[in-house]
Amino acid sequence: MGGTLHIEPNDNPRAGEPSQAWFALTRRGGRVIPLSQCNCQLAVYAQPYAAGEPPLLEPELEPVAAERYQGIPGAEVVFPKAGIYELQLNGKPVSGARFKPFEFKFEVTVAGGSNQNSRNLRDVNGDLVEGQSQQLPIWAIALPILAFIGILVVVLQNMRRSGE
């Protein structure tokens, strides 16, 4: 049995935006296993995670048509933030279907979303508040660069003087 994961758009999911994940399940010889023949479950884990830890998401699988595949397992997934995730697809045959139970694990890298700096957060009362991600101020970036340039100038001047 083989399994291939594809995530729309272009295998490049973005945080906070819906992505369509679909799984092409095939038997030896290339015959497709549709969702109607599989009792499949999808679990999404943020990396790293500890064994036994509950999944971050458990999206509901639905039959989808994608490329040349019809009725294969698919789900809409909204990754909460940028980072690395593991998608685990487990499946057993429904009565009448013939294939061995399986577990596939796929690692997915999620890019920052279009509004990654501004996120909706809930305060202790459950009220919606807007939060800003922490960013370094420009001076905190420029100061080490200027210090490095200053040290470089001093070293070069000392090298010239010692060579004279």
Rank of each mutant, 00 (worst) to 15 (best):
M1Y: 07
M1E: 10
G2K: 13
G3I: 02
G3F: 00
G3M: 11
G3T: 04
G3C: 08
T4Y: 15
L5C: 06
L5K: 05
H6T: 09
H6W: 02
I7Q: 05
E8Q: 06
E8W: 01
P9W: 03
D11W: 01
N12Y: 06
G16D: 06
E17M: 13
P18S: 04
P18H: 02
S19H: 02
S19G: 05
Q20N: 05
Q20L: 14
A21T: 04
A21H: 05
A24N: 10
L25Q: 09
R27V: 11
R28Q: 13
R28H: 12
R28I: 09
G30K: 06
R31L: 08
R31V: 10
V32Q: 09
L35C: 12
L35T: 04
L35D: 04
C38K: 11
Q41I: 12
Q41E: 15
A43S: 15
V44G: 14
Y45A: 09
A46E: 14
A46V: 13
Q47T: 06
Q47D: 10
P48T: 14
A51K: 13
A51M: 08
G52H: 04
P54C: 09
P54Y: 09
P55S: 08
L57C: 05
E58I: 10
L61D: 11
E62Y: 04
A65Y: 08
A66N: 04
A66C: 02
A66F: 08
R68M: 13
R68D: 13
Y69I: 02
Y69G: 07
Q70D: 14
G71S: 13
I72T: 15
G74Q: 02
V77Q: 00
F79S: 08
P80D: 15
K81W: 15
A82P: 00
G83I: 06
I84W: 03
L87W: 09
L89T: 13
N90H: 08
N90I: 11
N90G: 03
G91A: 13
P93C: 12
V94F: 08
G96W: 07
A97C: 12
R98A: 14
R98C: 09
K100Y: 06
P101N: 08
F102G: 06
F102Y: 08
E103I: 09
E103D: 13
E103T: 09
K105G: 04
F106D: 09
E107D: 11
E107S: 10
E107N: 06
E107K: 10
V108T: 13
T109N: 07
A111C: 00
A111W: 00
G113F: 04
G113N: 07
G113V: 08
Q116F: 14
Q116H: 12
N117W: 12
S118M: 03
N120T: 11
L121T: 05
R122Q: 14
G126D: 03
G126F: 00
D127Q: 08
L128N: 10
L128W: 01
V129R: 04
S133M: 05
S133W: 01
Q135E: 11
P137W: 00
W139E: 13
W139P: 00
W139Y: 15
P144G: 09
I145G: 00
L146C: 12
G150V: 02
I151S: 01
I151Y: 06
L152F: 12
V153A: 11
V154M: 11
L156P: 01
Q157R: 07
Q157K: 03
M159R: 13
M159L: 12
M159Y: 15
R160I: 09
R160V: 04
G163S: 15
